[in-house]
C-alpha cells in the first residue's frame, strides 16, 4: 500500500474509532509497527492527528481548525481578512500592545509590516514564528504550553502579563454568550482578565463563526470592550456605538 493510501486509510479508521493503538492499526492495515510509527509521526507533524504514547487520536473538528495553525501561510476568509485589516488600523507606531492567540490575529500580523517600533506582548508562540524578524519587539509570556494552538497560560503567564501597561489589547474569542466573551479554559479566562485590567483600550475581534458559538468559560464581559470589530453586528445589540463592521 502506498504511503498516501495508508494515510487515507488511517484517517478513515480514526474517523470511526477516535483512538487507535499502533497494534490495532497494524492489524487492520497489515503494515509493520515501525512503518506505522513513521506515518503517525509525519501525520502528526502535518496536523492531521494527535500522536499518543501507543497510537493516535483523531482531532475533533474544533481542534482540527486550531492545529492547522502551524502552516503560517494559512489564508483567512474574505470576511476574516477584513476584520484583521481593520484591527491593524487601530494600532499606532510606537504602541505597546497585547495580542491574544487566534488565527485571525495571526492573519493580522501581516498588516503590522507597515507599522514601526511596536512592542508586542502575547501568549501566542505562533506569533513569534509568523512575525517578520527584527521589525518589532516581541515579548512572549511564559507558562504551560498548549500544543493545540502553541499558546501559553498559567501563573507564569499571568505574572508576566501584569508587568506591562498596554495602550491597546486585542482579544479574540472562541464564543459569545449572554453578554460575555467565552473561551475554552479557566486559565485562558484568567489571563484575559489580567490583561484587560492593564489595558488602556480593549478591542475584540469577533468573526461570525465565533459569534454563533458558545464555549465553556465566561472570560470578559462585552461591555468592557472599547471597540468590537465584527461581521455579525446583530450579536452586539447593547454595543452598537462601539461596533465596527469592516
Amino acid at each position: 500500500m502506498k504511503k498516501t493510501e495508508r494515510f487515507a486509510a488511517i484517517l478513515s479508521l480514526l474517523n470511526c474509532k477516535k483512538y487507535l493503538s499502533v497494534e490495532e492499526l497494524s492489524g487492520q492495515l497489515f503494515v509493520s509497527a515501525s512503518t506505522l510509527r513513521r506515518d503517525l509521526a509525519e501525520m502528526s507533524r502535518s496536523g492531521y492527528l494527535i500522536r499518543t504514547r501507543g497510537g493516535a487520536m483523531a482531532l475533533t473538528p474544533e481542534e482540527a481548525e486550531e492545529t492547522v495553525i502551524h502552516h503560517p501561510g494559512e489564508t483567512l476568509s474574505a470576511a476574516q481578512d477584513a476584520i484583521a485589516r481593520r484591527a491593524a488600523s487601530l494600532i499606532q507606531d510606537g504602541d505597546m500592545i497585547y495580542l491574544d492567540t487566534s488565527r485571525l490575529i495571526l492573519g493580522m500580523a501581516a498588516y503590522l509590516r507597515e507599522k514601526k517600533r511596536l512592542t508586542i506582548v502575547t501568549n501566542s508562540l505562533q506569533l513569534a514564528l509568523t512575525l517578520p524578524e527584527g521589525r518589532h519587539r516581541l515579548i512572549s509570556l511564559g507558562g504551560e504550553l498548549a500544543a493545540r494552538n502553541m499558546s501559553v497560560t498559567g501563573r507564569l503567564a499571568i505574572a508576566g502579563a501584569e508587568r506591562f501597561n498596554y495602550r491597546l489589547a486585542i482579544f479574540a474569542c472562541s464564543g459569545l454568550s449572554n453578554g460575555y466573551i467565552t473561551c475554552r479554559s479557566a486559565a485562558t479566562a484568567s489571563l484575559m482578565e489580567r490583561v484587560a485590567q492593564r489595558a488602556e483600550r480593549r478591542a475584540l475581534l469577533c468573526p461570525r463563526a465565533k459569534a454563533e458559538r458558545v464555549t465553556a468559560v465566561n472570560a470578559l464581559p462585552v461591555s468592557q470592550m472599547d471597540v468590537i470589530i465584527t461581521d455579525a453586528p446583530e450579536y452586539f445589540p447593547q454595543a452598537q456605538d462601539r461596533v465596527i463592521c469592516p
Binding site: 519587539r137 516581541l138 515579548i139 511564559g142 507558562g143 504551560e144 501559553v152 507564569l156 503567564a157
Partner: peptide
C-alpha cells in the same frame, strides 16, 4: 512543557 517567556 513550560516556556519561560521573555523577549524574542
Amino acid at each position: 512543557l513550560i516556556l519561560t517567556g521573555g523577549e524574542y
